[in-house]
Simulated scan of single mutants.
Amino acid sequence: MLLASAANAQVYKCQEGGRTVITDRPCHADSKPIEVKPAAGEGDRSEYNSPAARRQRDVEYARELQRRADEREARQEIARDYDRRIAEINERQDRRNCSYLQGEIDRYEAKLRAGASAKLYEWYKSEQAAARGRYERECK
């Protein structure tokens, strides 16, 4: 009710004492009302609430949801790609480590066959056992 009466009210612009005054009453007998349009977001909202406007907002909302879903999927794909690359790097590193350990086992075996003093023989044997233990834990 208040909006309806405010929408139909007349507005006058007057000069009083060197100042501009906006009022709802005529300033003098020959005053004419000025045309006033409501500020953005106020006044008649029938166009905003029309079925076409609602459909347009629904379409824009659906597009925004799809854009966000696409961005989320792109971020997830980047994360999956990163994880795959890290797994490949780890796998290569594991193969290198296993190859190194197998080489250690073989080197100690060769030293044991070549003959060594009792003290070195025991040390080679213990080092070979340690390398075999690591190989069994990490490579099998």
Results as ranks from 00 to 15, higher is better:
Lys37Asp: 12
Ala114His: 02
Ser126Asn: 10
Gln15Asn: 12
Arg54Ala: 10
Ala131Phe: 08
Gly18Cys: 07
Val11Tyr: 14
Leu65Ala: 13
Cys139Ile: 06
Leu101Phe: 01
Asp83Lys: 02
Val11Phe: 05
Ser50Pro: 12
Tyr82Trp: 15
Glu136Phe: 10
Ala110Asp: 07
Arg85Met: 08
Ile22Asn: 00
Tyr12Val: 09
Val59Thr: 13
Asp83Asn: 07
Lys125Glu: 14
Gln76Trp: 13
Ile22Gln: 03
Lys140His: 08
Gln56Trp: 12
Arg57His: 06
Arg67Lys: 04
Arg113Met: 09
Lys37Asn: 10
Lys140Gln: 06
Asp24Trp: 10
Glu136Gln: 06
Ala62Thr: 10
Ala52Pro: 02
Pro26Trp: 00
Ser46Thr: 13
Arg75Tyr: 11
Ala74Ile: 03
Ser46Met: 00
Asn8Ala: 14
Glu91Phe: 15
Ser5Phe: 08
Arg134Leu: 12
Glu71Asn: 15
Arg137Gly: 00
Cys139Tyr: 03
Pro26Ser: 05
Ser99Ile: 04
Ala62Ile: 15
Asp83Trp: 07
Ser117Asn: 15
Ala130Tyr: 02
Ala40Trp: 13
Arg134Tyr: 02
Ser126Phe: 08
Met1Tyr: 05
Ala116Phe: 05
Ala87Thr: 06
Asp44Tyr: 03
Asp94Pro: 00
Ala9Ser: 15
Ala7Asn: 13
Tyr48Thr: 13
Gln10Leu: 01
Pro33Thr: 03
Glu64His: 04
Glu35Val: 12
Glu136Met: 15
Asp70Ile: 09
Leu65Gln: 14
Ala114Met: 03
